[in-house]
């Protein structure tokens, strides 16, 4: 595997240029920059509706220096499939790889059907879902990726509610169940790991899927300087395990020498702050800790024991 190192100056490809309208400290903007850094120039990118499309392409400007197309909210996977099939038909498959970069709403809720179709047909596409755990672009409405206990505008915490109730969809397992050859989870907090996984996914023949956890300082309500630190805490507490699944086998799990309690992650963000104030909050935190413990058990996250 290639080792990525930023040397600055001319070695940075800078394919996602400055001047985009993402909030200060946006995790997604960092992720997209790193994805393109790893992918290189010979890619065609498809993005559905979402923050990424809004901040990067106010006509007549664009922040992209690679071919990029905006699809509808639901059909990034279908548009990417069409591009890949078109390249194949024209005998130009070797010229570019197709990449779809979509948010959690466009992947896990609205575009789930087209994504399933793309997996089934076996197109040679790398699909990356950047998961900031709600519909941030329209004002922090909950999605099926919003974690339990988080307050969103459509699952607000209050006197009778502790926020989101349902667990996150296990997107990686959904992809694995389709027989996708390369599936990985990544975090924007581990930039070099993310770039390595993107390179692997692109080099893999057939569909590949990366589920990428990115913090959103606006929706998660934390200072803009903490984006990377908090994304990293999700990994260190066991709430966001990093692993790869190659041909159905779990490989390359990021193990933790000392797993942190989930409070360390929850207390950094405004969307969980009610858990530390409201009655019964400890019980919800205990349930969230149980999710982390189950992850640790399933993936063998703990180094000792």
């Amino acid at each position: 595997m290639g080792v990525y190192r930023f040397e600055g100056g001319d070695t940075v490809k800078n394919l996602f240029v400055s001047g985009h309208r993402a909030c200060a400290g946006c995790g997604m903007a960092i992720a997209v920059k790193l994805i393109l850094e790893a992918a290189g120039e010979d890619v065609i990118v498809v993005s559905p509706t979402g923050c990424l499309e809004i901040v990067s392409s106010p006509y007549p400007e664009t922040s992209w220096r690679v071919p990029w197309i905006h699809s509808l909210f639901e059909n990034a996977a279908s548009v990417a499939s069409g591009i890949e099939a078109g390249l194949k038909a024209l005998g130009r498959k070797h010229e570019a790889k197709v990449l779809a970069i979509a948010g959690d709403g466009a992947t896990a809720d609205i575009g789930m059907g087209p994504l399933s179709g793309m997996f089934e047909r076996g197109h040679d596409i790398t699909y990356i879902c950047y998961d900031n755990e709600a519909y941030m672009n329209t004002g922090v409405q909950r999605s099926s990726m919003t974690p339990p206990g988080a307050s969103a505008t459509t699952s607000p915490a209050g006197k009778v509610s502790f926020g989101e109730i349902h667990p996150k969809k296990d997107l990686a397992s959904i992809a694995v169940a389709h027989g996708v050859g390369y599936v990985a989870t990544a975090s924007v907090g581990y930039g070099l790991d993310l770039m390595r996984k993107v390179r692997r996914a692109i080099d893999h023949d057939g569909p590949s899927f990366i589920h990428l956890h990115t913090s959103c300082c606006t929706g998660w309500r934390h200072p803009s300087s903490k984006t990377i630190e908090i994304s990293r805490l999700a990994v260190l507490t066991g709430l966001w395990p990093l692993y790869e699944v190659v041909d159905g086998e779990i490989t390359d799990v990021k193990r933790l020498p000392k797993r942190l309690p989930v409070e360390d992650y929850l207390k950094t963000q405004g969307r969980f702050s009610h858990l530390f104030r409201m009655e019964g909050g400890e019980e919800i935190i205990r349930r969230i800790q149980a999710i982390a413990d189950a992850n640790a058990e399933r993936f063998g996250l703990d180094l000792e024991g």
């Binding site: 240029v17 400055s18 001047g19 985009h20 309208r21 990067s56 392409s57 106010p58 006509y59 007549p60 400007e61 664009t62 922040s63 992209w64 220096r65 690679v66």
Partner: peptide, 10 residues
């Protein structure tokens, strides 16, 4: 749109 044109937005 032409590539990389958001660079005009300071």
């Amino acid at each position: 749109a032409d590539p990389g044109t958001s660079i005009v937005n300071r």
